[in-house]
Nucleic acid binder design. Sequence first.
DNA 1: ATAGGGTTAG
Length: 484
Amino acid sequence: MLECQVLPNNFTFPFVLKACAGIGDLNLGKSVHGSLFKFGFDGNNHVLNTLVHMYCSCKGGIEIGRKLFDEMTKNDSVPWSAMIGGYVRLGRSNDAVDLFRQMQIQGVCPDEITMVAVLCACTDLGALELGRWVESLIEKRKLNKSVELNNALIDMFAKCGDVDKALKLFRTMNERSIVSWTSVIVGLAMHGRGLQAVSLFQEMIRDGVEPDGVVFIGLLSACSHSGFVEKGKEYFDLMRKEFAILPKIEHYGCMVDMLCRAGHVREAVEFVQNMPIEPNSIIWRTLINACRTHSELKLGENLAKQLIQNEPTLEANYVLLSNIYAKMSHWEEKTKTREVMDKKGMRKIPGSTMIELNNKIYRFVAGDMSHNQFKEIFEMVDAMGREMKRAGYVPSTSEVMLDIDEEDKEDNLNRHSEKLAIAFALMNTPPGTPIRIVKNLRVCNDCHSATKFISKIYNREIIARDRSRFHHFKDGLCSCKDFW
DNA sequence: ATAGGGTTAG
């Protein structure tokens, strides 16, 4: 258009900027931003809003977006929504929540679009208290409960541990989209309630809602988490035959995950070899991890070495190989693998556990001594350990991926972030109240067994979200029935 | 006529 020397007007820029945001092209966006000045355009708020949105939607642009945001006058919710949404997309949920609090302080009224973004941040953090507060704000301000807002609420409740509330909300909606169904099915899947997820899917079909590829991912993951291997295979076939949906790499990934969880590692390998599409590295990692947990160590070692050759820059691949060596007690090779990582400047993502208490979010990492109560927390963890042993708990020292003596291994286990967070919660919350924790990795065997004991000894319901699902611990048992 | 939002295996 510019080449044709047609002058853009007020209405042109937002459209063009939105297009830049859509394709995430920062340089293109910058050049449009530049030509804005070239035309002596002062930039009204609509244009500034779109500029913020554009920068926040392009890789590497969020700091520029923030600078514009800070400098502009912000009388309404739109730039706030764009900025908060930008942080959420980047996984900077804490920044998103901070900005939302700032918005509250400055007295700008959030609308339902702001609320969707903030709810996404709560979902990401697993912050149920925060999510409930956002819901109360929605009620207080009598915001329009759009389908999208309800979907965000369902997703938040399910992924923050209150799946029954998510279900209840779903039942009260008079208008539902495929996303509503998907959110609730995925939620049930995460909580290991596969039967309910399957029956909801069937209800959806009866209601005449056309399924899409995404809802099948939810359904297959429900089968996977509940050990429904045969049912999963049936649905995998059904999606092609009955609904003409071509399975994508994600669906194949679900099938691999399902076979692996059920311990059918050899079948999973065969499945991958016969897939009509090229397996991605995620699928290889699923397989390799299953080789470790189901003691197909030699196979796992070979697959991991191959994966590292093809993808030498990803630290997770080295961690997989090094954990396999640890399980084989091949300490020398494990050390070598770690040295390769060090040389490449790679570091394992530390396991961390988050807990919400009195509107504050606390994060623990293994051996964490940064907390001001750390002495008391360590004492509490040791006391817990003694109580647990009296009740029959045996530390799974074989899980410790370090070549150290038994006693040190026990100490190492006791300093896992999950145990620190639970000790902290036991110390700081009233007896009998449930404890909710959120982990960034999958729960380890020892913490899983220990948490079962703790739930019984201290008479607490403990709801734990790990990287892939929920565990509800109560009376010494876990809702996953030790299948995860 | 112009701005911001939702579900997706590990």
